[in-house]
Nucleic acid binder design. Structure first.
Lengths: 337, 337
DNA sequence: CTTGGCACTCAAGAACGTGGAGTGCCAAGC
DNA sequence: GCTTGGCACTCCACGTTCTTGAGTGCCAAG
C-alpha cells in the first residue's frame, strides 16, 4: 500500500513543513530532496497519501500539510531520535550539576528543558506515593505547636504545623517520634496508613490524644499532597509558535493543575518516551499541540514524569532526544544525592 | 490650566477607553457622560489635553486615547480606589481561609489575585531577610547525614542536608542544637551571621568540626535563599488583553526572575499601593503594561510584595481595590498563623 | 509506472472606491 | 470670552474587483 518511496515522500513533507511552516508542494519536494523522480510522480504519491489520511491540503491548490495521523506514522516509523550534540550534553551537565536540593533540581530541569527544546517544559515533582519514608521528625515550636516533617527517599520534604493538645510533655513527643520512626522508616508511603493504624495501641493512654492528632495530620498530608506538584517553564515559546487563536486556550489549560496531571499521567509506557499528537491529547484545548514525555527516577524506577509541549508542527526527533537525555540525567542526579 | 471640566473629560476618556478598547471621540463622550456641554466644547478641551500630552490620537481623524501621562493623572487625582463587593470579600475569605501552610497561602493568593483582577498576578514569598528565626532543628538521617531545618516567624521553612564528619555522637548534635536555638531564637536573619560567629568558641574542641560544617551550611542557606522566590499566575489573561505583538516579549520578561524581582522590588512606598504605568516600568518589554503592587506582611511590617500586571489600558480603581484587599487579607493570615 | 503538458482552482495581495467617524476651524450667539 | 452649530476636510476601515502564481488533477505519450 505504502511503498518505500511514498514513505520517503511523507518524511520529506513532514521535515519540510516543520522547518518552513508552509504547505509543501510537489515541486519544492523534488527540488530539495533528491527522490529521483519528477514532481508529477510525487503528485501521484501525494494523492495516495492524502487518500489514506496522512496529509491534507488547507485548501485546493495549496501544498500539503501532515495530519496528526501523518505525524504519528512519522514518529513511529520514519524518524529516529536525534542524540544531543556534545555541547548540549555538556550544557545539561553543568546546568543541572550545580543543583543543591530537590526544589532546585526541579526548577533547573524545567528551565533547561524549555531552553533546549524552545518549547513549553513540564516537570512533575517526584511523587510521594512512589517514595518511601526516610525519616519523620517532630519539632516543638512554641508551647502549643508542633512541626511535623516527613523526609522521603526522593529528597522531598513535607512539613505541617500541628496545634497540640495542652499539657503535652517533651517525653511524650520524643516517645511518639521514636515510635513513628521505628515503624515508618523505609516504609512505602502507600503502606503508611496501614502501618500507622496500630501505633496508638502501643502507647500509654495519656499519650494517645497527641498521637491521634499527629497521625491524622500525617495521613492528611500524605493524601493531600498526593495531589502532585507540577512546574512549567517556557510559556513564552508558545507565542513564537503561531497557535494564534488557540493560544489563549492552551495557556489556560496549562494553568490548570488537573489538565497538566492528566497530560503527563495518562501517557502509556511509564518509563520510556511517549509522544501524544494533536487530537490524541486528553483535553480539547490541546488538540493543536503535541506532547513528548518521559518518566524519570532514581535508577530504573520511575518516580515522576517530565516532558514538553509544543505545536503539532514540531521537530520530533530533536525534541525526543532532548527529553530523553534530560530525563536520564535527572535520574542520575536523584540517584546520586 | 486644566479646569475641572477638562479633568472630567480626561476621566471620561479613560473610563470609556478602558471599557470599550476603542479610541473615544467627542460625540460619544457627550452622549455617554452628561458633562452638560456640547461635543464642540469637548473638542476644544480635548485639543488642550492633547497639547499637554495627556491624550493622543492614533491617527488624524480618530478618537483620542490616554497616554501614560494621562493614566498617571487619572490614577493620582481623578480616581478613587474601588472597594470590593461583599461577594468578592467573601470569596477572598473562603478561598484564603482554607490554606494550611505558607506554600499554600502563596499559591492560593496568586491564583485568587489573577482571577479577581483577570490579569497576571505576581506574589513574592515572604523574604527571609526581613524575618526572624523561630526555630532551628538538626535531624540525623542516616549515619553520615544531617538535615538542617530553619523555621521563620513568617512560616517559611528552609531545609538543607549536610554531610557530617564521621563519628559524631548524638549528644554532640543535641548539644549544638540546643546552643543554636538558645542563641538564634527570635534573632533577625540579618543578624544571624554576627550571632553565629561566636558559637564555636563555646563548644568543647571535639565538637567544633561539626559546628563549623553546620554553620557554614546555615549561612550559605540564608545567603543563597536571599535570592527570593516569586510565583505568578494568570498568564493566560495576557492573551485576552491584546498586547498582540509585544505579548511574547512580556511573557519572556515574566519568566525572568530578575525582571520580576525588579518589578516588585523597585516600587516606591514599601507598604502602600504603588502603580507603575507603561514606560515607568524598569524593563523595556513591559512598556505596554502597568503594574499595581502592594507590600504585605504580618501586622504593619512589610515582609514581601504582591501585585498584578496588565495592559496600561486597565481598570485601575478596581485593580487597586483588589490588590489592596488581598494584601491586607494575606497579612492577617500571616499574623494569625 | 513515470513523465511532461495543460487546463483549472483558489488564496493572497494589490488597486480602487466609498462610507462614516472624527477632527479643526469659524462665525454667530449667550 | 466661553460655548455652540455648521461645515469642509482627513483618513482609516471595509468591501469589491482584478491579477498573479503556486499548486493541483488528469491525460496521453514514453
Amino acid at each position: 500500500m505504502l511503498d518505500d518511496r511514498k514513505l520517503a515522500v511523507l518524511r520529506a513533507i513532514v521535515e519540510d513543513y516543520v522547518s518552513t511552516n508552509e504547505p509543501v508542494g510537489s515541486k519544492a519536494l523534488a527540488d530539495r530532496h533528491n527522490l529521483g523522480v519528477s514532481p508529477a510522480t510525487i503528485r501521484n504519491d501525494m494523492a495516495m497519501l492524502e487518500e489514506q489520511g496522512y496529509i491534507a491540503q488547507p485548501h485546493t491548490s495549496a501544498g500539503r500539510v501532515p495530519t496528526d495521523k501523518g505525524y504519528r506514522l512519522f514518529v513511529d516509523r520514519l524518524s529516529t531520535i536525534k542524540p544531543l550534540s556534545v555541547a548540549e550534553r555538556r550544557a545539561i551537565e553543568t546546568f543541572l550539576g550545580g543543583a543543591y536540593d530537590l526544589d532546585d533540581v526541579v526548577t533547573r530541569t524545567v528551565r533547561l528543558l524549555a531552553q533546549l527544546t524552545r518549547q513549553v517544559a513540564v516537570v512533575q515533582y517526584p511523587s510521594l506515593t512512589r517514595s518511601a519514608v526516610r525519616h519523620v521528625e517532630l519539632v516543638p515550636i512554641g508551647p502549643e505547636r508542633l512541626l511535623l516533617v516527613i523526609i522521603t527517599n526522593t529528597g522531598r520534604v513535607e512539613q505541617r504545623t500541628i496545634e497540640m493538645p495542652e499539657g503535652v510533655s517533651e517525653e511524650s513527643i520524643a516517645h511518639l517520634r521514636a515510635l513513628l520512626n521505628a515503624h515508618l522508616d523505609g516504609c512505602w508511603l502507600n503502606d503508611v496508613p496501614g502501618v500507622v493504624a496500630e501505633v496508638p495501641d502501643r502507647l500509654p493512654p495519656d499519650e494517645r490524644p497527641l498521637a491521634a492528632t499527629v497521625l491524622s495530620v500525617l495521613l492528611e498530608t500524605l493524601i493531600e499532597k498526593h495531589e502532585e506538584k507540577i512546574v512549567i517553564a517556557g510559556a513564552a515559546n508558545l507565542a513564537r509558535a503561531d497557535l494564534s487563536q488557540s493560544l489563549r486556550e492552551v495557556l489556560e489549560a496549562l494553568e490548570e493543575q488537573v489538565v497538566l496531571m492528566r497530560l503527563l499521567g495518562e501517557m502509556g509506557d511509564p518509563a520510556g518516551l511517549t509522544v501524544r499528537i494533536g487530537t490524541e491529547n486528553p483535553h480539547e484545548s490541546l488538540f493543536t499541540t503535541s506532547v513528548v514525555a518521559s518518566g524519570y527516577g532514581a535508577g530504573d524506577q520511575t518516580v515522576a514524569r517530565l516532558g514538553v509541549l509544543g505545536p503539532t508542527r514540531m521537530d520530533y526527533p530533536g525534541t525526543m532526544g532532548a527529553v530523553r537525555a534530560v530525563a536520564r540525567y535527572v535520574g542520575q542526579i536523584l540517584a546520586g544525592s
